[in-house]
């Protein structure tokens, strides 16, 4: 595992070095992209000055809100749908094609309905994430061992107690896969809608900088967004792997 990791770092470092060289030689001119070293320096300066603390907080708060909504609604809906077989058969084709629909195309309609505030952004991010949570939770509920459910019946547990104490913990690794998607989609939804049309947030700042040809702000922010989402996704992947390994599933 170690040499692979090293090789990956080498590839990334080589890529960054290559871009740096292209920028320095002038094949990529500075109006298009400043050299990576300068982007890093600009990013450090921007973060130290604190002028982006507000937008970063706005983006992360909205993403957290959308994420919490998607997870609570998604898990609750999955538990209900799992109990109603007919409803599940009816909804399955919709789940299967859901992610083919460009959800962000609903953003203009939501702006008209709710105004240009946090609400349409949170709804978009929620809509992106909730179905992934539902589908993965259903998948996990399908795999709960029969014997656990029988034990629950023998202990005369009600359906709520069975759900919270038996089925959901048993389905946890699969639910976590859904949760992981919900995190990624919350960030994509919020930053995407901020970018298209908004009044605050990191996505808005990037769009604003683009419109003002302000590369010294735009590139550091793009890099910041990528770093934040890659770190969040990596942490969740590690947690998911540990959970699956403990169950002997991988």
């Amino acid at each position: 595992m170690k040499p692979i990791f090293l090789l990956r770092l080498l590839v990334i470092a080589g890529f960054i070095g290559f871009v740096e060289a292209l920028c320095r030689i002038g094949i990529i001119d500075n109006f298009t992209m400043p050299p990576p070293s300068r982007i890093a320096a600009d990013l450090a300066r921007a973060l130290a000055s604190g002028k982006f603390n507000g937008p970063i907080r706005a983006t992360l708060l909205n993403a957290a809100l959308a994420f919490c909504l998607a997870v609570t609604v998604g898990i609750t809906a999955a538990v209900v749908i799992h109990r109603l077989a007919a409803l599940r058969t009816s909804l399955d084709p919709f789940f299967a094609t859901y992610y083919a629909v460009p959800v962000l195309a609903f953003y203009p309609l939501l702006i008209i309905l709710f105004g240009l505030g946090s609400a349409p952004k949170v709804i978009i991010a929620f809509m992106l994430g909730v179905v992934a949570v539902i589908v993965n939770t259903l998948n996990g509920l399908d795999r709960v061992p029969r014997v656990l459910l029988k034990s629950a019946r023998m202990a005369r547990m009600g359906w709520f107690a069975t759900a919270t104490q038996i089925t959901l913990p048993s389905a946890a690794p699969f639910v976590l896969t859904g949760v992981k998607f919900a995190v990624a989609y919350a960030l994509i939804g919020i930053i995407g809608s901020e970018f298209i049309m908004s009044t605050d947030g990191i996505g808005f700042e990037i769009a604003f900088a683009y419109n003002n040809f302000d590369n010294a702000t735009m590139y550091p922010l793009i890099v910041l967004v990528m770093i934040i989402s890659i770190i969040v996704n990596m942490l969740l992947s590690i947690w998911e792997k540990q959970l699956l390994e403990r169950r002997g599933l991988r």
């Binding site: 960030l187 930053i191 995407g192 970018f195 996505g203 769009a207 793009i222 967004v225």
Partner: peptide, 8 residues
């Protein structure tokens, strides 16, 4: 990652 941000 939110690829929109790469669009600029």
């Amino acid at each position: 990652i939110p690829k929109v941000t790469l669009y600029p």
